[in-house]
């Protein structure tokens, strides 16, 4: 856990692994609580190359569908295949067992423009409902 967790404004979190080459991506607890009533999730294909900001999946609640965006560019190397059948894990352990996918970063410097924990907390405190 050498490198700190970062957040995208679109509420994905990303945690680089110690090597710095790849990272785990998930959905923030704030976003899961705001969505409520999750019923469906679509994960991307392993091996797909994506650019930062590109849609890499969908998460759907009873009321609405939201896109999941890649916080950084790279290749999808792993997905949490059991997650779509166990969406409650997103709520109960969003930063652990509720991880969504792993990406091999093609440009790790993109992490620099993402929000750190403090900045993200400020962002969501202004979006309270």
């Amino acid at each position: 856990m050498g490198i700190a967790i970062k957040f995208a404004k679109s509420h994905e979190w990303i945690r680089p692994e110690d090597s710095g080459a790849s990272a785990t991506i998930g959905i923030s607890s704030y976003a899961v609580e705001a969505l409520t009533d999750l019923v469906f999730m679509q994960l991307p294909q392993i091996g797909r190359h994506v650019k930062a900001g590109e849609s890499i999946g969908e998460i759907e609640s009873v009321k609405a569908v939201s896109d999941l965006y890649a916080p950084v560019s790279g290749e999808i190397v792993e997905v949490n295949a059991s997650l779509p059948d166990n969406l409650e894990i997103l709520g109960s352990d969003p930063f652990g067992a509720g991880w969504v996918l792993k990406i091999r970063m093609s440009n790790p410097e993109e992490l620099d423009v993402l929000l750190d924990q403090t900045a993200y907390d400020v962002l969501v405190s202004g979006q309270g409902h």
Binding site: T36, D37, S61, V62, K63, H129
Partner: peptide, 19 residues
Amino acid sequence: GRMVEFAGWLMPVQYTSIV
């Protein structure tokens, strides 16, 4: 209540969870 606009009214779409 999470208040949303509906037909010109401010209405609760949900309080806890729709389900």
